[in-house]
Simulated scan of single mutants.
Amino acid sequence: MHPRFLLALTPLLFTTVAHAADCDNATDQATMNQCAAQQHKAADKELNALYQQITQRLKSKPDSKKLLLGAQRSWIAFRDAECKFASAGVEGGSVYPLIYSNCVTELTKARVETFKNYLKCQEGDMGCPVPGV
């Protein structure tokens, strides 16, 4: 590669890195919205990983697995409806994506904690829907 070409790309590399690391010090609405969406994506990824672990433990209990699927679908519908309501005061505004994403992230994090508790069930715990390991 020609050295001039590399020099021309250098500002793009630093801009991308600086932009990605700016979530802690975001000052403009677009960046805050983007960072909130990234936080939601991370929480959702953790939730999905835990969901997969739970479904693995329920592989010998198809009825329980079906109940989990129904509960999760209902929970997603609740989460989305709750966050639409919670952010309705700013709907259409530039802050809406931030408020909505923060709500979805917080509810997702709470569901993550619920799933983590399900995965801590001890064998023989009659009050826990997920078999222990």
Rank of each mutant, 00 (worst) to 15 (best):
P131S: 09
P62Y: 08
L7C: 06
L6G: 05
A36I: 02
P131R: 09
L9P: 00
K109E: 15
M32S: 05
K66Q: 12
T108A: 11
K59M: 08
A110H: 05
I76T: 06
P11E: 04
T10L: 10
P62F: 12
P97F: 14
A37M: 04
A81N: 11
T31E: 11
K45C: 02
I54W: 14
A26Q: 06
V112P: 03
G127Y: 15
F5C: 05
A43I: 00
W75H: 07
I76K: 10
Q122L: 07
E46T: 09
G127A: 15
D80V: 02
R111M: 05
Q52V: 07
G132Y: 04
N102H: 12
A88K: 13
N48Y: 01
L119M: 15
D24W: 03
L68H: 08
T15Q: 00
C83E: 03
D22W: 03
K120L: 15
E106A: 15
K116M: 07
N117R: 14
Q34P: 04
L69I: 05
T10M: 02
D24G: 15
L12D: 00
Q39D: 08
Y118R: 08
F78E: 06
L47K: 10
F85D: 04
Q52N: 09
Q52A: 14
A71M: 07
V90C: 05
L68V: 05
F78H: 11
G124W: 12
R111H: 08
K59H: 14
P62S: 06
L6W: 08
L67W: 04
E91G: 00
L13Q: 00
K61S: 10
A26V: 06
Q122N: 11
T105L: 13
A86Y: 02
V104A: 13
G124D: 13
F5N: 06
T114F: 08
T10K: 01
Y100Q: 14
I99S: 09
F14V: 00
E113Q: 14
Q56E: 10
P129W: 13
V130A: 12
C23L: 01
F78Y: 15
E123F: 09
T55L: 11
P62Q: 12
S64L: 10
M126R: 10
V130W: 07
N117T: 12
C103E: 09
E106V: 06
S64C: 02
S101H: 12
V112I: 15
A20I: 01
E91A: 11
A37I: 01
P97T: 10
A21L: 06
S87Q: 01
T15E: 00
D80G: 03
S60F: 04
V104D: 10
Q72N: 02
F115K: 04
D80T: 09
T16S: 04
Q29M: 15
Q56P: 01
G124S: 10
V17P: 00
M1A: 07
I76L: 15
H19I: 00
D44N: 12
L107D: 08
P97L: 14
R4G: 04
K61Y: 13
L67Q: 15
Y51E: 12
L13N: 00
K84F: 03
A26Y: 03
H2L: 11
H40K: 07
T105A: 14
V90L: 05
N102R: 13
L69H: 11
A88M: 10
T55P: 05
M32L: 13
N48S: 07
L98Y: 09
D24M: 09
Q122C: 02
A18M: 00
L119S: 11
A18R: 01
M1P: 07
L119T: 08
L47M: 13
